[in-house]
Amino acid sequence: MSWITVNRNEPAIDPNAPPILSAALCEKIRSLFPRYDTKRAVLLPALHMVQDGLGHIPWQAMKEIADILEIHPSDVIDTISFYTHFWTHPKGMKVITACRSVSCETMGGVAVLLELKKQLGIGEHETTPDGRFSLVTEECLAGCDHAPCLLINEKLHRCVKVEDVGRILADDNNDRISQKRSDLFDAPAGDSKSKDVSGLESTSDVAEMKASE
């Protein structure tokens, strides 16, 4: 029998590290308090803001968010790990989310995903060595009328064909949306130097589910 494999007594945070959430970001989080009955309800917006600002949500940020919302840090990781959108370890500047649901899959999504993997040289839930792209798959993006779909950060690419992949990847503006942004949430940032540190695995990681079979 293999013995203990994870030691949770080890702190993930350096207690002497300076705060990583800026005062302005904390203020922005607090400014949402009046919208809800509880402070905890601000958790999801806060996580969005932090991920948009830092690229991912490191342990230290979880702790700081917990302090702002007056909850236990375990409640923060509990919530984060439930949702697929949040990253607990660095990701690429741009996250490519390929739809894997039924319309996209039957309309050629698999070939597009394979092409993406080939051109990027990475698998699902991986990041290119230069830190430019991370690749994930997600269930239906509600763009099935334009299947197969890809989301690059905020931008939905529709009716993507295998031969479009190279062009889309090469386009610097492939993540720009045409809408005027609301200042409630910033444009998502990536981690410029994305090195995979030990974070929690993401939830609906199908690759992993498959790997364990």
Binding site: R8, N9, E10, P11, A12, I13, W59, M62, K63, H72, P73, S74, V76, I77, S81, F82, L200, E201, T203, S204, E208, M209
Partner: peptide, 13 residues
């Protein structure tokens, strides 16, 4: 996590 990959855990440290 969620679904069949749910686990009980603590915040490290």
């Amino acid at each position: 996590n969620r679904g069949s990959r749910l686990e009980i855990d603590v915040f490290p440290g």
